[in-house]
């Protein structure tokens, strides 16, 4: 089972803000139980939207400045970026469908 890519303060601007397709960033920490529970759902989302949307993770403990920049005060938090801009966010453990709905709001469903 493939793991999700990790982004850091150093790579965030290139991988997330510079991406051509929308990117979902999972703000997490190793000690966070609900964040671990979210992992299978995020992997499924990455598979479902393969080629259309990227899903990456960012450790808030190791990358505090990014978390502060986007006002992430609680985790897990999922932030959706498109063409360098923050478009939407979800806080707390959530379902596949809620994440999918956040993504689908950005684009019409495939025919």
């Amino acid at each position: 089972m493939s793991k999700l890519d990790i982004v850091t303060t150093e790579t965030f601007d290139v991988i997330v803000l510079g991406a051509e397709q929308p990117v979902v960033v999972d703000f997490y920490a190793d000690w966070c139980g609900p964040c671990k529970m979210m992992e299978p759902a995020l992997r499924d989302i990455a598979r479902e939207y393969d080629g259309e949307v990227s899903v990456v993770k960012l450790d808030v403990d190791a990358n505090k400045e990014i978390a502060e920049r986007y006002g992430v005060s609680g985790i897990p938090a999922l932030l959706l970026f498109d063409k360098g801009a923050l478009c939407d966010r979800l806080s707390g453990a959530t379902s596949r469908s809620a994440i999918a709905a956040m993504i689908d709001k950005r684009e019409a469903p495939r025919s």
Binding site: E48, S97, A100, A101, D104, P109, R110, S111
Partner: peptide, 9 residues
Amino acid sequence: PSDWRRVRH
């Protein structure tokens, strides 16, 4: 997959 996605949408 499109069928599932359309109904979810």
